[in-house]
Lab assay of single mutants.
Amino acid sequence: QEELVKAFKALLKEEKFSSQGEIVAALQEQGFDNINQSKVSRMLTKFGAVRTRNAKMEMVYCLPAELGV
Rank of each mutant, 00 (worst) to 15 (best):
Q1A: 13
E2W: 12
E2G: 10
E2M: 12
L4R: 01
L4W: 05
L4F: 06
V5C: 15
A7W: 05
F8Y: 01
F8L: 09
K9R: 10
L11H: 02
L11Q: 01
L11R: 01
L11D: 00
L12Q: 00
E14K: 07
E14F: 06
K16W: 04
F17W: 07
S18C: 05
S18H: 12
S18D: 03
S19W: 06
G21W: 13
G21Y: 11
E22S: 10
E22F: 03
E22H: 06
I23F: 08
I23A: 01
V24S: 05
A25F: 11
A25K: 13
A26H: 10
E29S: 12
E29R: 12
G31L: 02
F32A: 00
D33R: 13
N34G: 12
N34F: 12
I35H: 01
I35R: 00
N36P: 04
Q37C: 06
Q37M: 12
Q37D: 11
Q37S: 10
S38G: 11
S38P: 09
S38C: 05
S38R: 14
K39A: 14
V40F: 01
V40H: 00
V40R: 00
S41Q: 13
R42V: 13
M43K: 00
K46R: 11
K46T: 10
K46Q: 15
F47G: 02
F47I: 12
G48I: 02
R51V: 10
R53C: 07
A55D: 11
A55F: 04
K56W: 07
K56R: 10
K56Q: 12
K56N: 13
K56T: 08
M57F: 10
M57E: 10
M57R: 08
M57T: 05
E58R: 06
E58K: 08
E58W: 03
M59P: 06
M59V: 09
M59F: 12
V60N: 02
V60I: 07
V60M: 03
Y61I: 05
Y61L: 04
L63H: 02
L63T: 03
L63K: 02
A65C: 05
E66D: 13
L67S: 14
L67E: 14
L67A: 14
G68F: 03
V69W: 03
